[in-house]
Design a protein around this nucleic acid. Structure first.
Length: 765
DNA sequence: GTTAGTACTTAGTAGGCCGCTT
DNA sequence: AAGCGGCCTACTAAGTACTAAC
């Protein structure tokens, strides 16, 4: 019963319903500037809103405008104090005994549901596959026990293999894109046994023992980061004007000016905050003389610079093949030199080995710091982390590192502090690495443990809705949202430092509306807030009566800008969750619900009779259900309409072709009836086959069209990469004899190598 | 319990790349 | 060979979670 409380139908269909979105596209215009500013964003905003509207009907324009006003009020800074006061005031209040009606009949799982299709059964029982045994006291140990990885290799062997790997490096690298020279070598070297060799050569870290002492590695050697290219001053003919007068800028000021010039086409350079932040930071780079001359950004003319860069990028496109190849080879060389490290005897790919270049900060949504100068990172800003006994990376000539440390309790190789938020940035390994893979695997094992006790937890939080204590009720309702709607935890954030976004625990009164009755539904909660990346979450959903009554209680005597859950934050919630299940945190629910939904949807949607494209469509639809659940949106591709049209043309052509073929078949049949000879019979057979083939082609095209249409503004990648236990997909592929390439591209296959290797067709999440 | 700091995961997008068509 | 379109990757922002110190 676990996880079956959502409405799969709505999820699957919501994408396909969006094609009439244009009807509503103007509705929320007034809200747009809140978080999106360039053209694309606008497009997407419309689309997003149309999704929302499809989910639950109309939305009132006025309400949004009101909200807008409140937002403004809110942003003047006084409301925070107000919120604090509100909190203070209620801190000691006890929950008043409130009258709570006997719950009406609910679904067996306790989730009131309306208009839902029959739930898909899931089996929460153990299936013998789950490798996680009983719990252990400490976290580290628990993590280790989660894994059923018997050490199948002794260490010596492992090291030998690793050494060989290092030597053989060229052979195993990039085995997928077989370059001609490699092919020859392969042929010469191993007589066509390549596939087998490939398998043997890949390091199966998941078959090895893991450290139990909290250390992340024993040996780490790397070459340090690649720095951004130094600034190249503009040629003299590219001029800059201020107030009509040409000014030759000093190099530092010029560099910052070019950052702005490169962005001129983006709408955000017209935004006040962006311009203000940029100008302030730009002036810091100016000489006193420049400072005195350049006092107003509006009088600055960057056109020549902008043109210069456009011409430059045009020239880059027009480069000859040779030149392009040269650049490619150079990049490859850098990748080979800096893109890998040696960790515990294995060469591992580094994720991001380049230091972020300087530029203007562009946060997502309505970011108060947009336009600020992201400064250039120098070796003196860099902390290097590696083994003491490794060959330490050398700083560029004449420079030194900020620090060299040897901390094997962390996974990063390089770090620096970024100047916009003052946060630390890291260079870490690629998702295909052992260190990331183990963690990923562990994440899904934790989610599977949640599966085993989720019903208990659900019963518990429902019970807590009746608690005498306000904080417990709030905790329980928040958890209900996290579980039912897959909301993020919602950490507190510093106001004014980032865009105003929220998650579950940080929801404010203004983000929800309660409707005791709405159309044919009862106890409907309407959510409307900006979540991570300022992506709008909009949903109207019936909730259980008791939860609804609690929400009404939470709202009493509060202002729109007050916290909905004023007695709750993520650390309280997670502390509680930790007590319920070892290793449980709020985000595990998202992983669990995403994965269980995929598994259920795959079961429900895959039909044995479907052909390959049909099965792929089912897979994508199951994936889509998860993406909708997790609110993973994307901007509709720029070329969406056009590519849809092209596909439609193809379909039309195919239809015509089919009609013709059918006619021909008919004729052939008639001929055969008349003549009854062998030749005409053969003709009929041929024609029949042609018709069948064309029919199938047509179906496939139509399926493709459906898939694409449904996918217009839903991003599948995020859930596939971060929320769906890959073993579910692998098992599905094995069960239906579909090659894994149809579901995972090369990168994804590398990341999920562990799952591809270990999951059988009977894997159950 | 609050806050600051750190480490790591999750997120959407721009633009490059690559294969296909014309 | 050029242009197109879609996929993929690199990039980096923005989350979550945890720890330690007060």
């Amino acid at each position: 019963m676990s996880g079956d409380h959502r409405n799969p139908d709505y999820q699957v269909n919501s994408g396909s319903k969006t094609n009439d979105s244009h009807k509503h596209k103007d509705k929320h215009k007034d809200k747009e500037h809140r978080h999106k500013d360039h053209k694309k964003d606008k497009e997407r905003e419309k689309a997003k809103h149309s999704i929302s509207e499809h989910r639950e009907g109309r939305d009132s324009e006025k309400k949004l405008r009101d909200k807008e006003k409140e937002k403004l009020k809110h942003s003047n800074g006084s409301s925070d104090k107000h919120r604090e006061k509100q909190k203070e005031k209620r801190r000691d209040e006890k929950v008043k005994p409130i009258h709570i009606d006997k719950p009406k009949r609910e679904n067996e799982n306790g989730y009131a549901r309306e208009k839902s299709p029959p739930p898909i059964k899931s089996e929460p029982d153990d299936n013998g596959f789950d490798p996680s045994p009983k719990q252990k006291p400490t976290k580290r140990e628990r993590d280790d026990e989660e894994f059923d990885c018997k050490p199948k290799k002794v260490k010596k062997e492992d090291e030998k293999k690793a050494k060989k790997r290092r030597q053989d490096y060229d052979d195993e690298e990039e085995e997928e894109d077989i370059k001609p020279k490699k092919k020859t070598r392969v042929k010469k070297g191993m007589e066509g046994k390549k596939p087998k060799k490939e398998e043997e050569e890949k390091w199966k870290w998941w078959e090895e023992e893991r450290a139990t002492d909290g250390s992340k590695w024993r040996f780490l050697e790397h070459k340090g980061p690649v720095f951004a290219l130094p600034y190249e001053p503009l040629p003299l003919h590219v001029r800059f004007f201020c107030d009509g007068k040409q000014i030759k800028l000093s190099t530092p000021a010029e560099e910052v000016a070019t950052f702005f010039a490169k962005m001129l086409d983006h709408e955000y350079t017209t935004k006040d905050i962006f311009r203000k932040n940029f100008f302030k930071d730009w002036r810091k780079e100016m000489t006193p003389e420049e400072k005195s001359k350049i006092t107003d950004l509006n009088k600055c003319n960057f056109n020549e610079m902008s043109e210069h860069f456009k011409a430059q990028s045009e020239a880059r496109k027009q480069m000859s093949k040779d030149e392009k190849l040269k650049i490619k080879e150079e990049n490859e060389r850098i990748l080979q030199e800096y893109g890998f490290c040696l960790m515990d005897n294995h060469k591992e790919r580094i994720g991001n080995f380049r230091i972020e270049p300087p530029g203007l900060f562009r946060g997502r949504g309505d970011h108060p710091k947009m336009g600020m100068l992201k400064r250039r990172i120098r070796p003196e800003d860099i902390i290097i982390n590696c083994s003491k006994d490794s060959k330490h990376p050398k700083p560029p000539a004449g420079t030194r590192w900020k620090e060299l440390r040897h901390d094997n309790k962390v996974t990063w190789l390089v770090s620096w502090t970024e100047n916009i938020q003052g946060s630390i940035k890291y260079i870490m390994l690629n998702p295909s690495s052992r260190i990331k893979g183990e963690k990923d695997w562990q994440k899904y094992e934790t989610a599977r443990r949640l599966k085993k006790c989720v019903e208990r937890l659900r019963a518990q939080y429902r019970d807590d809705w009746k608690s005498k204590e306000m904080r417990i009720r709030q905790r329980a309702v928040a958890l209900y949202f996290i579980d039912k709607l897959a909301l993020r935890a919602g950490n507190e954030k510093e106001e004014g430092e980032t865009a105003d976004t929220v998650g579950c625990c940080s929801l404010r009164v203004e983000h929800i509306n309660l409707y005791p009755k709405m159309d044919d539904q009862e106890y409907v909660v309407e959510f409307d807030f900006l979540g991570k990346d300022s992506i709008r979450y909009y949903n109207k959903i019936p909730v259980e009566k008791r939860a609804f009554k609690n929400l009404q209680l939470f709202l009493e005597n509060k202002q729109p800008e007050d916290d909905l859950f004023d007695r709750l934050n993520t650390s309280i919630l997670n502390k509680h969750l930790q007590e319920l299940m070892d290793g449980l945190t709020a985000k595990v629910f998202r992983t669990y619900n995403a994965s269980i939904t995929l598994q259920q949807q795959l079961k429900a949607l895959t039909s044995p009779d479907d052909n390959l494209p049909g099965k792929i469509l089912s897979y994508n639809r199951a994936n889509r259900a998860v993406a909708v659940l997790c609110n993973h949106q994307r901007a509709p591709p720029k070329t969406f309409e056009k590519s849809m049209q092209n596909l439609q043309t193809k379909i039309d052509d195919k239809q015509k072709q089919l009609a013709t073929s059918r006619k021909q078949l008919k004729t052939a049949k008639a001929d055969h009836k008349a003549s009854h000879d062998e030749k005409s019979k053969k003709a009929v057979d041929t024609k029949r086959k042609t018709v069948q083939r064309i029919e199938e082609q047509l179906m496939n095209l139509q399926m493709q069209a459906t898939d694409r249409e449904e996918n217009k503004q839903i991003a599948l990648g995020t859930s596939k990469l971060n929320y769906l236990d890959p073993r579910i997909s692998v098992a599905w592929c094995k069960k239906w004899e579909i090659s894994i390439e149809k579901v995972y591209n090369k990168t994804q296959r590398e990341k999920f190598a562990w799952a591809i290797d270990m999951a059988e067709d009977d894997f159950e999440f």
